[in-house]
């Protein structure tokens, strides 16, 4: 089971993670705006921007993050923002947060001028995440682990980042044993999904480019 300091770390992470909220005006648009491709894409852009701001607030609370070199902080966030956004989207779709919005969000994504070659892998990923029946703790820890990845481009002091990521991996591994005793491979599966998540960095840049061309 978790040591007292691991318990404390987990509670601290969950407390920060639960502070994440889309600003009400963004959620309102999701519900009320017209259903044109342009309007849908604008809403997605606004949600992505607002997600980055929410992500930065969560990241600033990660134990030790503020002690890192400022440029390394930027490099970590730049390198993980897209992955963290798709991880958060998987949680929103799979845990149906908030009620009813998930279907509407899917409708808007599918009618936003983004071509299917990018939409299909997105929803395949959400489905593959749903199969893992992840708890909120797993989503929160995985997001923190994604952010504190020492192998992002332009990181100067990788050791310091690794020292912050390691305890989180340890807690996640124990959580997997506690919540998914029936599947000893569960922790390995989660880490495997991180590799799949990395493919979205390229998809996302291409998708934006192709959307602009269209």
């Amino acid at each position: 089971e978790l040591t007292p300091e691991e318990q404390h770390l987990l509670h601290y992470i969950m407390d920060s993670y639960n502070k994440q909220r889309f600003p009400p005006e963004v959620s309102k648009k999701l519900l009320q705006e017209a259903f044109t491709a342009e309007e849908n894409f604008l809403i997605l852009t606004e949600m992505a921007t607002s997600h980055v701001q929410v992500l930065v607030e969560f990241t600033k609370r990660l134990p030790g993050f503020q002690t890192l070199d400022h440029e390394d902080q930027i490099a970590l966030l730049k390198g993980s923002a897209v992955e963290a956004m798709f991880l958060r989207s998987a949680e929103i779709f799979n845990r149906k947060l908030p009620e009813g919005h998930a279907d509407l969000l899917e409708e808007r994504i599918r009618n936003s001028g983004i071509s299917d070659e990018y939409i299909t892998p997105m929803f395949q990923f959400y489905k593959s995440m749903a199969e893992l029946k992840m708890t909120q703790e797993e989503y929160a820890l995985l997001t923190a682990i994604v952010i504190l990845s020492p192998d992002r481009p332009y990181i100067q002091d990788r050791d310091s980042v690794e020292r912050l990521q390691e305890p989180l991996l340890g807690v996640l591994q124990k959580i997997c044993k506690l919540y998914h005793a029936e599947n000893p491979q569960h922790f390995a599966c989660l880490l495997g999904r991180l590799t799949e998540l990395r493919t979205f960095n390229h998809h996302h840049a291409d998708m934006l480019m192709s959307w602009r061309v269209n």
Binding site: Q53, V56, E57, K60, I74, K78, A81, A205
Partner: peptide, 21 residues
Amino acid sequence: PASNLGLEDIIRKALMGSFDD
């Protein structure tokens, strides 16, 4: 790509300021 430029601006602003409600 340009999108990353926008991303970096948003990140720098959010890191300095605070969008805390």
